[in-house]
Computed example of a mutant assay.
Amino acid sequence: MGISVLVANEYPVVRSGLRTLVAATEDLAVGGESADGHATLDMVRQRDWGLLMLDLCMRGRSGLELLKLIRAERPRLPILVFSAQREELYALRAIRAGAMGYLSLRSDGETMLVAMRRVAGGRMFLSPEVTELLASHPVESGGVLPHDRLTDREYGIFSRIVSGATLTDIADELSLSIKTVSTHKSHILDKMTLAGQVEMVRYAIEHRLLETVSE
C-alpha cells in the first residue's frame, strides 16, 4: 500500500478529484476524507497518516488555528495546505504555522503529485510565488504592515469581511457568536488604524489581499 493520504476539504468535487488523481499512482493512496475541521481533527487523532492535504476554509474548527493544533498534537505529520485561497492571503502564515507546503487549487495534476510526494517525504514544497513571498515579505526585512499585526483568528475574519461575507456568515462558518465576530472586527480596525469596513476593503485592494483582485 502507498502513502496513506487524509484529504480534508469540504467540497466533494475536490475530494473526488484528488481520489481520481491519486488512484492512478502506485505510491499514494487516499486513506480517508473529512469535510469539516472537527472531523479532520478526530481523524488525525485516530491513526498515523503519511500526509494530510488540508484546506484552510472548512466549517467548524478550521484555518490556521486548526493547522497549529494539528501540528502541536502530531508534530511529525506532513501537512500540505491545498486551498483556493490566494498565496498572498495565507501562504506565509500557513508555513509559519507548521505546513510543509502550500498548493493552489489552480495547480495542475503533475504539480500536485510532485508536491504530495515531496511533503510526504519530509521536504518542503514551495511554488515560485510562495518562494518570492518568503524572500521579499516586509517582516523579514524589519518592517511590519498593518495586517501583519493581526492574530491568525483576526486575519481570517478580516479576509472574510473584505471578500464580502457578513458578520452572520462569518459567525456561522467559524462557529462563533455574532457578538464575538463584531468584537474581533473592532480589534481589527483598531490594530490597522482604519475607520470602517470601506477602508478595510480599500486596504485589501491596495495590498492585493482580495480573492477577486486579478493577477
Rank of each mutant, 00 (worst) to 15 (best):
S136P: 00
D36Y: 02
A120R: 03
Y11Q: 15
A135D: 05
E65Y: 01
T212A: 15
G17N: 10
V119T: 09
G109I: 01
L189C: 07
A204T: 06
D169L: 05
A84K: 02
P138A: 15
T20H: 06
R19K: 09
S175L: 14
E132W: 09
T111S: 06
R19W: 01
I161D: 12
G63I: 06
L134D: 02
R208A: 15
T25A: 09
R19F: 02
G31F: 08
T212I: 14
G17K: 06
M124G: 02
L167R: 15
E26Y: 08
A91H: 02
G156W: 11
S141Q: 11
D27T: 13
L209K: 13
V44D: 03
D27K: 10
L69S: 08
Q46H: 08
T212R: 12
L210D: 07
V119S: 11
L133V: 00
G32I: 14
I188E: 10
L18N: 02
D172F: 13
R118W: 00
G60A: 14
T168G: 15
R208F: 14
R96C: 03
R19V: 10
T212G: 04
L209N: 11
A135P: 01
S182Q: 15
V81Y: 04
L56S: 09
R93W: 07
S107T: 12
Y155P: 09
L54D: 07
D169S: 12
G98I: 06
S177D: 10
E33P: 04
V213F: 14
D55S: 10
V81A: 00
H184W: 15
G63R: 01
D27M: 12
L105R: 12
L41C: 08
L189W: 03
R19Q: 03
I205Q: 13
V44Y: 03
A39C: 07
P78I: 09
L41V: 06
A115P: 07
A91V: 06
E140K: 15
H207N: 15
M100Q: 15
E215V: 15
L145K: 13
S127I: 04
R118Y: 02
